[in-house]
């Protein structure tokens, strides 16, 4: 049934650090690589070598510029995958029962054998976390690498989502948000982790850690600027430098 569970034992999800992310897209590629060869059908590409390549991705990195009047613009790289919402609207709209939220860990999944590819769940998602695979005609979404995190056949350090494992900057953290002592709960509490588009009432599990505020470089006195940008001034010179200054002036 595509009714949502009243509560879930665990709330597995990601804490994504917008301060640390460098926008390298390694998580995008490793997600695609893992998920095209494991759970469900492959993630197809269309016109991959043509003029308008497109394809199915479960994780994408946007890049935003944030600008205030007083300060220089700040660039924020913004990875986005399924937020595994507690009140997931994508699950309840599903007419076939293909979409479901697991009561044990809160992961939102699609049983592809039941999916008729109507696309309604993608309409219901505010975050663009679901993409229809054009080749297979079924809905694809982040599984939180359900086939890694419980997998006894891989080394323990690999039992995290592929995006988390691969991130060279350590910007993605995986854990249980239902446990207040977990790594992600503590990180989110310390850094003021926030939910995306909370006004949609979806109650996402994933949290985003805001970029730390950068040093204010709008006034010249606060940091050392490189020499060419400074005013040409030699009034304070003494001794040899003072003589050199005067000598050069006379030439």
């Amino acid at each position: 049934m595509t009714s949502l569970p009243k509560s879930t034992d665990k709330k597995l999800g990601l804490a994504i650090d917008l301060d640390t992310c460098v926008g390298c897209h390694a998580c995008v590629i490793s997600c695609k690589e893992w998920n095209t060869s494991n759970y469900g059908s492959p993630l197809s590409d269309m016109d991959a070598y043509g003029a308008q390549p497109s394809g199915t991705f479960l994780n994408r990195v946007h890049t935003y510029e944030v600008k205030t009047l007083e300060r220089a613009a700040q660039v924020v790289h913004f990875p986005k995958s399924c937020l595994h919402c507690e009140d997931a609207p994508c699950v309840t709209v599903c007419p076939t029962g293909a979409s479901y939220k697991r009561s044990e860990d809160g992961i939102v999944l699609v049983n592809e054998d039941d999916c008729m590819g109507c696309g309604l769940c993608a309409w219901a998602c505010p975050y663009g976390a679901r993409e229809m695979d054009v080749a297979e005609g079924v809905m694809k979404k982040c599984t939180l690498c359900v086939d890694r995190i419980y997998n006894d056949n891989i080394p323990e350090e690999d039992r995290v989502p592929s995006c988390v494992r691969t991130c060279p900057a350590g910007a993605r953290h995986f854990g249980d948000f239902a446990d207040p002592e977990s790594n992600v709960s503590i990180l989110s509490a310390e850094r003021g982790g926030f939910a995306l588009m909370a006004e949609q009432g979806t109650n996402p599990v994933n949290r985003y850690l805001p970029p730390r505020s950068k040093a204010d470089i709008s006034g010249n006195d606060q940091i050392e600027l490189p020499a060419p940008a400074l005013e040409a001034e030699t009034g304070g010179a003494k001794g040899f430098l003072s003589w050199l200054d005067k000598a050069l002036e006379k030439i």
Partner: peptide, 28 residues
């Protein structure tokens, strides 16, 4: 509100996550 970055200032897309339209853009 979509990015949650509003408290830092005005937000605009600097770079799209991909170079050509995807399912989301075509459909939504």
């Amino acid at each position: 509100t979509a990015t949650g970055l509003g408290n830092l200032g005005r937000v605009r897309l600097l770079e799209s996550p991909h170079s050509s339209p995807n399912y989301l853009l075509k459909e939504m």
